[in-house]
Design a binder for these strands. Sequence first.
DNA 1: CCCACAACTGTATGCGCTTACAGTTTGCAA
DNA 2: TTGCAAACTGTAAGCGCATACAGTTGTGGG
Lengths: 354, 354
Amino acid sequence: MAKAPTVYDVAERAGVSIASVSRVLRSPDSVKEQTRERVLEAVRHLGYVPSANARGLAARRTNVIGLFFPGHDDVAGSEGQLVAASGGVTTVRDDPTTEPETNNFYFDEVLRGAEIEAWRRGFALMVAAGRGASREAIVNDIAGRVDGLAVLARTVPDELLTHVARRIPVVVLAATRGTDEFDHVSVNNAPGMRAMTEHVLGAGARRLLYIAGPEDSPDDAERLQGFRAAVDGVAGVTVELIRGDFSRARGREIALGIDPLPDAIVCSNDQTALGVLDAMGRRSIGVPDDVMVTGFDGITAGRHSSPRLTTVHQPMVELGRAAIQALTARLDDPSMDARSLVLPVQVVLRESCP
Amino acid sequence: MAKAPTVYDVAERAGVSIASVSRVLRSPDSVKEQTRERVLEAVRHLGYVPSANARGLAARRTNVIGLFFPGHDDVAGSEGQLVAASGGVTTVRDDPTTEPETNNFYFDEVLRGAEIEAWRRGFALMVAAGRGASREAIVNDIAGRVDGLAVLARTVPDELLTHVARRIPVVVLAATRGTDEFDHVSVNNAPGMRAMTEHVLGAGARRLLYIAGPEDSPDDAERLQGFRAAVDGVAGVTVELIRGDFSRARGREIALGIDPLPDAIVCSNDQTALGVLDAMGRRSIGVPDDVMVTGFDGITAGRHSSPRLTTVHQPMVELGRAAIQALTARLDDPSMDARSLVLPVQVVLRESCP
DNA sequence: CCCACAACTGTATGCGCTTACAGTTTGCAA
DNA sequence: TTGCAAACTGTAAGCGCATACAGTTGTGGG
């Protein structure tokens, strides 16, 4: 890495001007074959890789899209420096009760979708996760690096977004549009939960427990609304609501303490529902015979639990893709009206509430 | 987004030179308080976000690190354009046998680790996944955008890496060092599998089935080597080897056809082992009583299977972090000798092979 | 009140590329 | 041959910022 070669080096070796080098790389057909060959030879010989910075500066676009989501704030143990010492094998017996939980499946999938769509459209993808206080700096930083930014709802104050949006288009994920000026992409939370709940009622459940997520989640709020719409006014239905935090551990904890048992436990996400299943297993309570359980999200783990989890599947990969599409659409036509795209969901019936 | 403001705009509004604007942003202390305030006011007022391209060009570094890994090549259904129509809820009954599998947990974790460490060290993270043929173009593209590149083993031809490495440092993940000049970060595959296998033997198993991964996986090769080291020369042990592909589906398929049953099935990754557990469940064969099952990776799903999966846990998040650390170390001192870091693994005993 | 020096600010240059425009070559009809 | 359009190539001007260096202002000592 003595000194990265530049267009000038390539041009010199190929005996052409830097404009020709640039042309060979950008629009090969506009250059005579013979010249092109000489340039490409020089590129290979010198190990030339064009600087995206210079390119971006000259072309006034980076061809990068940013994705910002709430982060694993500061992960335990992430402080340390890794020792350089190599190898080692230890053995532990894993007690089911010790459980460092990571439940970012949701973001992983969104990210996957975004990654796919971004590259398909010729954009690179930059990811950033929100660390509490430094969030503002990070968002600003990333905003300077990209042509467009997709942000997960509620992770960034509107004021910051507005600031950033003066420079690049911003699309907000997983929140329906309020009064802001951004494009939005979300899923059909309320109708999905409503349909799920109606299925539960249809299966004969009358005494329902609803385990909600954190109060500041707009997704959760919409799901709760859908749940209420389903139960409201239905004769003979009683409802209890407990607030969880979307985690498996909390779901389990709540379910371990439930007494008497309701007919059905409707959870506002899958992780919570899986925790409930764990608890029922431990309490030797039959699902769905003694109590039905449902989730929301459609994470892979729900297909492999026992019993398998009935849930509302939301298209997470599609969500990521849609975000990129919304962004590129706006880049193509900045004057477009702000749009709000709501993706369909699917009630998936499995054994936990057949 | 009429026209993004630049340093010049900010300087003009604040009544200072562009150098002062730059200073306020880069080293605030070198500017008189009063001036600083004026500049910051202008920044806020104009919605100024500095261009990372210009900054990178001038400073000769991007402060971005790239992560390249094998991709979900072309995902089914990813061709379509999303309809702009909103909403919708459908219901399906999910048959356990239909199963679109996504098993990138591994990469998700590595990515998480890399993301954390990169931002901690003041770098942004750019991710790219390998699409078959366009791989070369993608790697070249991303190489022009970053200060350093982490690449998952075997996903990129050495020749390409060498080309790229002339411009920026490259670290290869999950493969021990061969004769190349790159830094490497990997995990202790062979000793880990050896220890796992010895545990299996210690539990009394004598007829073993080993389900390997794809032939081109260096990780898999090392694990197999560890397995062989453990069984070699142990009296009375018989071994059969079947090659899988690291997928859950393939693991299940293989396990459904096994007859007669061995004492233990040692799998070279968790997904495969989970597939084996699925199959045993369906065949009503008791695990670990009738057959023991072990995996390798330590993915979350293994903690929630039934029975819970005994496995060798590899520190995937740490792997990602270590990659970034290796990269930044080399950026700090490019003349350093190529290093190879091997991370420790942990045999985790759970019910599938206690 | 002057001067040396510190603290601060401005000027000017270049980072590596794209691209409008001007200049040169080529092919071919006249 | 000559002339001219088409095809190609070169020249030069930025893109928005960082920073070396020069210039300006402010401070305290003499």
